[in-house]
Computed example of a mutant assay.
Amino acid sequence: MSDGTGVGSGVRARPRLTVLSGPSGVGKSSVLAELRRMGPEIHFSVSVTTRKPRPGEVDGVHYHFVDAAEFRDMVARGEFLEHAEFAGNCYGTPKAPVERALASGTPSLLEIELQGARQVRVAMPEAQLVMLAPPSWEDLVGRLTGRGTEDPAVVARRLEIAREELAAEPEFDEVVVNDDVKSAAASLLNLVVGPVPDA
């Protein structure tokens, strides 16, 4: 049964890699959680990180948790599609699972920071870059400051980074505004599995 997004329509475009990026606090985790419920045929890339697991995070599900030495070895072996340092920790996207998914005909989605998205653009020019944006700058400020659990200096730094990330919007192929999680997930699903025009 088709839901209007191309899923179940019987029409299969060639699979592609979609890169989702957006500032801290924009709701990427919530949108991706909704997308998982809507689009089970999508391969969700699991990043490698050197940061410690947070409560409830499962190794191999949320991230692959490694130490700094192992991460450096993986970089040296060329195992990453992209890798970057963010907030004092290293993050990387394993190349092999993405390549396997695309080769099998399954669209692949990865969520990474701006500098990583730029690396993917160079490594895989055919990848689709999507920015998840807040309804407004004031809305994002409210989300970040409303947590009330972090040092003001940390929040200020996140806002500074967020401003830089939003300024990079012209580098992205598509922008999805997260003013409603379900609507944003539906828009993202359509971009991930929608038809791809012939080159």
Rank of each mutant, 00 (worst) to 15 (best):
Y91D: 00
P152W: 11
N178L: 06
S47K: 14
G27A: 09
D179F: 09
T93I: 13
G148W: 11
F44K: 03
H62E: 15
L144T: 02
N190R: 14
G148M: 08
S183L: 14
A153K: 14
G148C: 11
P195E: 15
E138D: 15
L166E: 08
L189V: 01
G116S: 04
D198P: 13
S183Y: 08
G60I: 01
E150Q: 13
G92D: 07
K28P: 01
A184N: 00
S136V: 08
S21M: 12
L114R: 09
E113T: 05
P55D: 08
D3T: 02
T145E: 15
V46M: 00
D180M: 09
L81H: 02
V181L: 07
R12D: 09
T5I: 08
A156C: 04
R14Q: 13
D173N: 13
L188M: 07
R77G: 05
E150A: 00
G92M: 08
A133N: 01
D179W: 12
E41F: 04
A103I: 02
V196C: 14
P152F: 15
L17F: 12
P195T: 15
G8K: 04
L129Y: 00
S29R: 05
F44H: 07
V98T: 02
P197A: 13
R36V: 10
A156S: 09
S183K: 15
K95Q: 10
Q115T: 14
L17E: 11
Y91M: 05
V141S: 03
E164R: 15
E41A: 07
D151V: 05
A162D: 06
E79K: 13
E57D: 05
E85F: 04
E160P: 04
G148V: 06
P53Q: 04
E126T: 11
S187W: 02
S30Q: 14
F80S: 00
G39A: 15
F172H: 10
V177P: 04
S45M: 11
L17A: 12
